Amino acid sequence: MLRSVATRRIARLRLPIALLTASLLASLSGCGLLGGDDAGSTGTQNTGGAVEKSKIRVGVLPVVDVAPFYYALEQGYFAKEGLEVEPVVVASGKASIDGATGGDIDIAFASYPAPLLAQSTKTVDFKIVADALTAKQGHIVVVALPDSPLKKATDAPGKKIAITQRNTMTDLAPMSILKTEGVDYSQVQFVPMSFPDMIPAMQNHTVDGAVVVEPWVTTAMKKVGAVPVFDGASGPTAEMPMSGYVAVSKFTNANPKTIAAFQRALTKAQSEATDRSKIEPMFVKYAKVDQETAKLVTVATYSTSLEANRIQRVANLMQEFDVIKGKLDVSAMILSPATNK
């Protein structure tokens, strides 16, 4: 079934489909996106009073999850809340988390395993400020070249599969699916590397397959004819929360109005992200991905609410595979707009 899906997606390359998303590459310059007014400027719509800190730094990764964040910047939603936001593009979730822990970043975007793991070790107290993206089928996929010996999930033991890093969604999601299907995931050799390196690694047979997220799923299919082996957002990981924005409790406690202003602006942008005509220009302008490829990218769900029971699924998944020792109560980390006044 997945192969037929892949065939249909490639066949649609010439159609004017309004499904565009892209990876916000690490080479993006955050400064060029800042167009808002300073706190206290005329036209501010901050209804909660003056924010405690008007200029904040937000760590973001080169992934599709943060597209609404850039849309909020472009539309001046943060500025209208009295915030001047500087995006700081980092290479990994760990780098974003480390930046927040060290005080270089005020709010950190990350794939959930990174902050949840840090929280579980009790080295830092994180609060989840906003949910970012929920995966749907086609967003995170194990792919391989047509001539690879990796053709189905049961072929995975003994094979080399590229991932971004251990203890992330790129290995946890596939392991969960393999375990459900009775496949010995412990025999899979996961090879960490960056997304851009995965396609060449498959071509030179350094790896048998790769776990990629959009837009790399579509890029791999279009560029080298990669085919899906199995979907990482299916079965036990269907509609799994993938990422969010977090901050250390020291910052959230000292700046509740700043956090509330950030939440309002981001929620507005993420609610508007369902309208592709509004958010597509952001992908084209900042992602540097050709329009033909971008139109085929599977668009996941941008969250507009912050629900502990959903994000708890990620913590439970991490506990299942011994990434987290003991149970982590995610509800204690949630900083919802309703309680953040």
Score class of each variant (00 low, 15 high):
L306Q: 07
K55L: 03
S111R: 08
P87W: 15
Y70P: 00
T252W: 03
L150G: 03
I311K: 07
L33K: 12
V217A: 05
G138K: 00
L328Q: 08
A308V: 01
H205P: 05
K179T: 12
G49K: 12
T252S: 11
K53M: 13
A114L: 06
P115Q: 05
V207D: 14
T168C: 06
G40A: 06
K295V: 02
P157A: 10
P16T: 06
A226N: 05
R310Q: 11
V211Y: 03
Y245M: 08
K122T: 04
S303P: 00
E280W: 07
D155W: 10
M169Q: 08
T219Y: 09
K341H: 13
S249M: 02
A50M: 11
A39L: 13
T293F: 01
R166H: 14
F251A: 00
A287Q: 02
P68I: 14
P16W: 11
V229Y: 12
P149I: 01
A226C: 05
F251M: 01
K222V: 03
E239M: 10
L73N: 08
V314T: 13
T44S: 13
L19H: 03
E214G: 09
Q75E: 15
N46S: 11
A26R: 13
N316K: 15
S336C: 00
M282F: 12
V212P: 00
T304W: 08
D275K: 01
Q187N: 12
G76I: 09
M198C: 04
A173W: 10
T123M: 12
E74S: 07
I177K: 02
Q270L: 02
I259C: 06
S41F: 12
E52K: 00
E214S: 07
D125P: 01
A265T: 05
L172N: 07
D37G: 09
G76K: 04
K285A: 13
S29G: 13
L73D: 09
V143L: 14
G82Y: 10
R313I: 06
S331R: 12
S92Y: 14
S176K: 14
D171Q: 06
V88E: 13
K94Y: 14
D171T: 06
A260W: 04
V90D: 07
M240T: 07
R276N: 09
E307S: 12
A39M: 14
A308K: 04
R166E: 09
S186E: 15
E181Y: 13
A261K: 11
T237A: 13
V129T: 03
K285D: 08
L34G: 03
V188G: 04
L150A: 03
R8T: 00
A110Y: 06
G99I: 04
F321E: 15
V66H: 08
F190E: 02
S54A: 13
K80Y: 07
I107E: 14
T101W: 09
T267R: 10
E86A: 10
G138D: 09
K53I: 09
K159V: 00
A238Y: 14
A173Y: 14
Q189E: 15
V90F: 11
V63E: 14
A18G: 00
S92T: 15
Q263I: 05
A315N: 07
V207R: 10
A162P: 05
V129H: 01
L61M: 15
F126A: 00
P157L: 11
D155V: 06
Q187S: 10
G182L: 10
Y71C: 03
T7F: 08
K55P: 01
